[in-house]
Amino acid sequence: MKTQRFRLAAGYTVLTLLLIVLAVVNICAGSADITLSRLRSTLADPESDKIAYNIITQLRLPRTAAAAILGGALAVSGFLLQNFFANPIAGPYILGISSGAKLTVALLMVLSLSQGFAVSSFGMIGAAFVGAMLSMGIVLMISGRVKRMSVLIVCGVMIGYICSSITELVVNFSDDSNIVNLHNWSMGSFSGIGRGEALTAAAVVFPACIASFLLSKPMNAYQLGESYAVNSGVRIKAFRAALILLSSILSACVTAFAGPVSFVGVAVPHVIKSIFGTAKPVRILPACFLGGSVFCLFCDLITRTLFAPTELSISTVTAVFGAPVVVYMLLHRERGRVNG
């Protein structure tokens, strides 16, 4: 008990510190370097350095906030899915849910470009949510038939490929100058997220995460199996529906603003669980959010700075760190099965 408490305290402290440090670095670093002292003086007196102030408030701050909020959303979405499927390798990207959202958003974007109407942020989230739910529906149908988790994951990856190729097709056939943006988005990126969009994302993500946190207790019982949860008095249908809905909303929101971001949903909860040494949702769900924020801030920093001024897509970087974690988990799980 003592070690657990210590681990929790230490974990949360480190994550919070990392979040602050990375946020500051993300705001400062970039093609126009802003030193810490310049940041401080600019924020104290916006009039003194108009350029820096504009860069910070118009570009870097929204982008940093978006990376933190959406990264957290992804990790929480992954954590919910892992609990739902009782499988540590489940996640919005790996199960093809992000790709489903990507497809519907791309369709809406192309449609709006060709028809010349503007789509609001909420409209985008709505479209992404529809796509996410469609993919989720297919995944749920498959999971109803096959119990083997690896099969489910392969199916999820295939759904992802199908959605991605249709998206590419749609994007290639639409002839518009905005296509470059669309292409960037479909690869996944936090660039170009403005203040309004960041606020919208926050308005969706935070309530969804709080709602998820309030599901901690039934989620904990559900970790011991569906029947256990039922015997504990969990209203199982409502609970399962809530898990699916919340994880879809969260990953849809991410996809609407940043496109598909890979592996955060799987890798972050896993790392958090093993560092904290517990899977109790009430203890680690907030940590998953923080971890996702930290991870995405770190990866976004790399996308912007590694080959500046060229930007990488966010998934390129998250995959480099996230995919090995997933491979390790798969190996670990299979080995566990042989020994057990």
Binding site: A86, P88, Q223, L224, G225, S227, Y228, N231, K273, S274, F276, G277, T278, A279, K280
Partner: peptide, 11 residues
């Protein structure tokens, strides 16, 4: 119940 559940990080 009889069924075995695989748990992770649960003491």
């Amino acid at each position: 119940l009889t069924g075995r559940v695989k748990t992770e990080y649960m003491r």
